[in-house]
Simulated assay, not measured.
Amino acid sequence: MRFRIFTEPQQGATYDDILAVAQASERLGFDAFFRSDHYMKMGDAGEIGLPGPTDAWTTLAGLARETESIRLGTLVSSVTYRPPGILAIQVAQVDQMSGGRVELGLGTGWFEQEHLAYGIPFPAKRFGMLEEQLEVITGLWNTPIGERYSFEGAHYTLVDSPALPKPTQARVPVIVGGGGAKRTPALAARFATEFNLPFPDFADVAGKFAGVRTACEAIDRDPQELVYSAALIAVAGANEAEFARRATAVGREPAELREHGLAGTPSEIVDRLGALAESGVECVYLQIMDLSDLEHLELLAAEVVPHLS
């Protein structure tokens, strides 16, 4: 099982805060550092999330030059934020800047309020946009140098694009996820290298993965070509008092965290992860909400990861 750190900087973090967590994640041996792609704090409407948002791909460009080995990506970028041609350029450039360590998670977006707050259009129907963006982005990257790429769809039209720049990686990993029963698995089967379940009910994991495998088989793709992952909040404590303190710090109840996340003592979390592995989870995104608590990362790296890596 691979372990990745997943952060939510829109809740209130500077670039330096994010950098500290990314560099700690690298030093502690985590496989990747991922961040959300949002422009507004979620939760209490009275809190605005100082110091304000950081742009995901601007952040990752900085991290690409200030880290050496850890993989970097978004979970997930929204199709509403950037036209696919621009996103393809951004991701390819950050991949070059990092020496080939970038991954792209892409989704439909859902947080309407941030769109209203920053003047970003938020169409009611976005799944078609996601499908076309995946086709355009991968099409641009896969177009041989010297050839041109054109596309005409319901949402986007590209005419004689030089399809540059190219990523450093021969194939940038693309993550598609969600709980949909048919359309999302079909999209993952067509375009993704990884299928991710964000904050799933534990009992649903095996069935959701089975749906993706069926979608792969329907188009004659080997289901084993995909990585199967899950994103879950992680709150650990060496003892009950430390766990309760960390739960309070992120505004969650200990019992609720134990029910829905990777929470409690390291041994409890190891047991939960073991069950997830039996359900088919190969990679886990540990959602870390308190970016100031680097000792939390150290505990997870020392007392959880070695039991399942």
Rank of each mutant, 00 (worst) to 15 (best):
D16S: 15
A210M: 09
R190N: 08
P200F: 10
L63K: 00
T74A: 01
N239D: 15
E217H: 09
F243R: 13
G211F: 04
T248C: 09
A20M: 13
L134N: 02
L75V: 00
A61C: 05
V304W: 01
L140E: 01
G180C: 15
V270I: 15
K182S: 11
T214I: 10
F191E: 01
K166V: 04
H260E: 12
R213V: 06
L50P: 02
F209C: 12
Y156F: 13
G43K: 03
G52I: 10
G109P: 03
Q224T: 13
I48T: 10
V212T: 03
F209E: 05
D271L: 09
Y156G: 04
V174P: 06
G280S: 14
E295T: 15
E8Q: 15
S78Y: 05
P9L: 12
P266S: 10
Q96M: 12
D222V: 12
Y39F: 15
P254Y: 13
I219V: 10
E8C: 09
N239L: 11
Y118G: 11
H296E: 04
Y228I: 09
S36E: 05
T193P: 02
P162A: 14
I18P: 06
Q10P: 09
A277F: 00
Q287C: 14
S77N: 11
Y228K: 11
M1D: 07
F30H: 07
V284N: 07
V304R: 05
F122E: 03
T214N: 08
G29W: 00
A210H: 03
R27I: 07
L164W: 02
Y228A: 11
V76K: 01
G100T: 07
Y156V: 15
E278Q: 11
D95R: 11
Q113T: 09
L187C: 06
E268S: 06
Q23V: 14
I70M: 07
P83E: 10
V136M: 08
Q169P: 11
G99H: 00
L291W: 01
V79Y: 01
R258A: 12
P162C: 14
P254H: 09
M129C: 12
A275V: 11
T108I: 08
W57M: 03
E303K: 13
R272L: 15
E240Q: 12
G177N: 08
G128M: 07
R35P: 08
C216S: 09
H115S: 09
T14L: 09
D201V: 15
L130W: 01
L19G: 07
F34S: 00
G207H: 06
E282W: 01
V79L: 10
W57L: 04
E295S: 14
